[in-house]
Amino acid sequence: MSPKLYPRRENTRPDSLPHMFCPGCGCGQVLNYFLRACHELDVKPQDMTCIGGVGCAARIPVFLDTDALHGIHGRTLPWATGIKMTRPDMPVVVFAGDGDALSIGGNHFIHAARRNIDVTCIVVNNLNFAMTGGQVAPTTPLAATTMTTPYGSSEPPFDLCKMAETSGATYVSRWTTAHAMQAIRAIKTAMQHTGFSVVEIITGCPTHFGRYALGTGDPTKVVDWIKSAAIPKTRADKMDPEEMSEGLVVGEFVNTQRPVFYGSTIYESGDNDETS
């Protein structure tokens, strides 16, 4: 009998495993979710281009058997736009850290949503800047301790999904690594969606956010914390805002359709010109 191989391993980049993520890091889980989503949809990363910026999450495409762009902080969506305009036929998936998507790349994020580029953007939100050693991010909860907020963060965090929604994204959902099946389903929906689809996945970073903000480097305790902080949208809709101000609402927020971006100026080709 031949040894039983992990069935989704075929879509990982040859010789790239084991990955470099810390034990308990959510990036490994998101990589796994994506492989699973591809498997269930019967699509191959080989037929796509996957983009990472800089950071831990940005390394995910490096472990996928795919064409990839990597190594620049915050410019994933401009890249994706240029690629998509040139190859509208090819799926483009972005893996961005929360710092990548919302701090350095925040302006690109709102404009990508406004334009409704036909790209899937998976934001791996570990609530801090992990690759650089656990500094505060625009998503870090108020009062959380990080390497650059030693007395607690004085800045209120962004709600990425609300920002995506008000900026015009046509598919938006948030799940966590404590909601594996829902996250996989959301990635599948996003990949089948035409238009700018955003899946935010709250992930554990035991090494940094866990130790500094939560007082534990234990991956299971970090997942427990995520689970307790998550409020399903159905429940949140019935709660008063005060009560849930600290919580992370999970669920599907937007699923709609409107024309996708093809360039800044309206242009109708003269194909149906009577004289031709």
Partner: peptide
């Protein structure tokens, strides 16, 4: 792109 060549365009 997208034809199985698996190129990483990394800085």
């Amino acid at each position: 792109l997208g034809e199985g060549y698996g190129t990483i365009y990394s800085i």
